[in-house]
Design a protein around this nucleic acid. Structure first.
Lengths: 345, 345
DNA sequence: ATCGCAAATGAAAACGTTTGCAGTAGCTTT
DNA sequence: AAAGCTACTGCAAACGTTTTCATTTGCGAT
């Protein structure tokens, strides 16, 4: 007995090595690990001992090849610097790992071409399902999904066409509520700092909702009073500065998301503009910080962690063969805090 | 010719189908895609046409099985709600996808047991390399890595033992600089809001650095003046409130990270304590928001995106057979802004 | 034309699992 | 103690690639 370790030194032990060590066949070893109720308890234990002794780690690719399941879910997300996506990713990852799945993540800086490529890469990696953000995608992406006949979930947005599985909120409606709240406070002169609307249906819907609510009370929104800004506090500051310079006279600013609103708020503070006495500011998303500021930021609560978790649950349910509602709408309530107040006289 | 599509309807086309459609052998089809210079240009094109026509997508698991490479890198990260990790993840993902690699992400809420499990799951999925955060891990994790003989990179922390490959900053040293800066401003009564130090070597090093710098000038830090708080703005607010209640009299607060510092700052604002006149506050990390506040937050710049990107580059280089320095230290300079000032008389 | 060589192709053996089917134990029952 | 049944176990064939090695093809030089 010169060789204590039967397998090559460099390579990892495989199931065959485990089987040999346990004195059973390959098939039995496999079953002992995957379906222990099919194999005698004693045998089972021998196999488990062998596994521990050899430090055997299953070879996922081989398993995936044989079972045609990778136990992996792909997610294609915008940059995670946006805390809402970070939260959703975390919640999703959590949900999946509880069920023995792992998250394969791709991020893409809002570029549809890159998104398509990333999605392709995920599909090649053999993901069992996909989580996407929003409805705005390269048409090739939908074709790809179709061909691969992969289950997927659209998050954040709702597909009122009823075709895609989705879990999200009505950005338009929530935005209407924001505008109405400000109208009810007596505001008549508005400005909007929107997120970038290209390739982003959420940003477009939010802008559209605000426009619509104002229009329905006969209030227009000149283009000089609307600015698009990339998602970031700094951009919010700059946008407000620009609005004040080019088209002053508004008493309320509706922002496309919280970081923009926080930027606007900080710009006001830096300039000595009092909020909400001289200017009301509303955000969207309800990031953690929104509640901590003084005054607290009036905003719309979009439960991003819940969206991530629900998307995970739904996908897992579908993979388990259960049926789920095609569309799951999550309520996004208006949270009134201190940054909105009556219009100045 | 009744059947136009030779493969089963439900299943995806495989390389064999492509080969048949192109009228070449399996081997040639494989080469045409992977090493086009080995096959005649005309043949190559026929294969590519067949690929497009059939919508062929390679089966990653099969490829991984054959090549023993998955083109996938695993990352085991704490929650991404912390923007520093979100940034690093994004930068890492970017770096990898440029090289045709994909990121397999696991997150773990600072629980070493969960971290170990997650890492195992990643290894089973066949990652070619791993990115870890910090040095504090279950010993089983290091054993696992050893056995799998997987290349990995430790991020954020530095292994002065010279054993692990790592890219990070000296938290201790940077923290010393923070304390010295405050000492130089004349402060003598300090409080510290530290991150949770259990399972977190960065938080420990930062606390130790502050302690050490104060001690070297003969200043003690009673335990009533030290509080640990989970990473979050709200926890920072609460911690400062607690310190003010239990052990008032300090003129400077050193915080374990920026969110805690921002929380402390907001608590001051809510209580009418002026910063820095009555109280100086310093953070750590330099998150985006730190520069946007007024006054700006004095903090230490830890380039998290760069850490993520460097970790990716290093791992890719090693996978390509190149040698890299075992330890890569990134400078973490003190950024003095408005929240620190002379000690009140 | 023929030869020779390089370049292009093909056949078949991996890669490490799972799983249907067939066979062999081990019990229970008489 | 034999029979019958069930509960386990083993053999071998997938799964879809890549890659080695042998073979064929194409082409320029003789």
């Amino acid at each position: 007995m010169l060789k204590l370790r039967p397998m090559a030194l460099g390579s990892n032990p495989k199931l065959a090595d485990v089987a040999r060590a346990a004195g059973v066949s390959l098939a039995t070893a496999s079953r002992a690990l995957a379906q222990p109720d099919l194999v005698r308890a004693k045998t089972c234990e021998r196999v488990r001992d062998a596994v521990n002794m050899l430090g055997y780690v299953p070879h996922g690719a081989a398993r995936a090849l044989a079972t045609r399941r990778s136990k992996t879910i792909g997610a294609v997300f915008p940059p995670l610097d946006n805390p809402i996506f970070a939260k959703a990713t975390h919640a999703l990852s959590r949900e999946l790992s509880q069920a023995g799945y792992t998250l394969l993540l791709a991020t893409h800086d809002y570029d549809p071409g890159a998104e398509l490529l990333a999605t392709r890469a995920l599909i090649e990696r053999g993901v069992d399902g996909l989580v996407l953000v929003g409805m705005d995608h390269d048409p090739g992406l939908y074709r790809l999904l179709e061909r691969a006949s992969l289950p997927y979930e659209i998050t954040w947005s709702l597909d009122h066409g009823g075709y895609h599985h989705c879990v999200g909120v009505s950005h338009r409606l929530a935005s209407v509520h924001v505008a109405q709240h400000l109208l009810d406070l007596g505001h008549r002169e508005f400005a909007v700092i929107a997120g970038e609307t290209a390739h982003n249906d959420r940003a477009r819907d939010r802008l559209a909702g605000a426009r619509e609510a104002l229009a329905s009370r006969g209030i227009g929104l000149p283009s000089s009073r609307v600015r698009e800004a990339p998602f970031a506090v700094a951009a919010g500051k700059a946008a407000l500065a620009g609005l004040l310079a080019d088209a002053p006279g508004f008493t309320a600013v509706i922002c496309g998301n919280d970081p923009l609103a926080i930027g606007a708020l900080l710009e006001c503070r830096a300039r000595g503009i009092t909020v909400p006495d001289q200017l009301s500011i509303a955000g969207f998303d309800d990031v953690d910080l929104a509640a901590e500021l003084t005054p607290g930021l009036t905003t719309v609560r979009v439960p991003s962690a819940e969206i991530g978790a629900r998307a995970g649950k739904r996908l897992l349910a579908r993979l388990a063969g259960k049926r789920v509602r095609r569309m799951e709408e999550i309520k996004a309530p208006l949270i009134v805090r201190g940054t909105t107040g009556p219009a100045p006289a």
